[in-house]
Computed example of a mutant assay.
Amino acid sequence: MYYAYADIEGETLNAIKALEGEIGRPLIAVKPVALKPAEIEEPALDRLRALEARLGVTLVAVEPR
């Protein structure tokens, strides 16, 4: 399962901020995203890994919808 940041505002955002204040920790709201991972062959996989290392992020290749 993959997740993305949830778009929140208004009362939902206020409730999250209130709980952050109560527990003294930041909270991140995420929502599930239906994605199908793509299979990548060499050398594309090597290029993907090199870019991940250079940028300090994790990249996930997915099948187009």
Rank of each mutant, 00 (worst) to 15 (best):
G21R: 02
I28H: 03
I16W: 02
L35T: 01
P32E: 05
K17M: 14
A4F: 03
K31V: 07
G10Y: 14
D7H: 15
R65I: 03
L27T: 08
E42S: 14
E63I: 09
R54I: 02
Y3E: 08
Y5A: 09
V57E: 03
G56H: 03
E41W: 06
A6N: 06
L55V: 04
G21Q: 07
L51D: 06
V60C: 07
E20V: 07
K31P: 01
R65F: 07
P32A: 09
M1D: 06
L19W: 06
A34Y: 06
L51M: 14
A29W: 09
E42W: 09
R65A: 05
P43W: 07
G21E: 04
R25F: 10
P37Q: 15
D46T: 15
G56P: 01
I8P: 00
P26K: 13
R47M: 12
A15G: 06
K17A: 15
R65V: 08
A18S: 12
G10E: 11
K36E: 12
A50M: 04
R49T: 02
L35S: 04
E39G: 09
E52K: 02
G56D: 00
A50K: 15
D7Q: 15
T12N: 08
Y3K: 07
A38V: 11
A18T: 14
E63N: 11
I8E: 10
M1S: 11
E52M: 04
L55K: 13
A34V: 12
G56Y: 03
R54S: 11
L55M: 13
Y2T: 05
A34C: 05
P64Q: 07
L13I: 11
I23R: 09
I8R: 10
K36P: 00
L48Y: 02
L48I: 14
A4H: 10
R47K: 15
D46L: 14
L48W: 01
P43F: 04
V30C: 08
E9N: 15
L35D: 02
R65M: 04
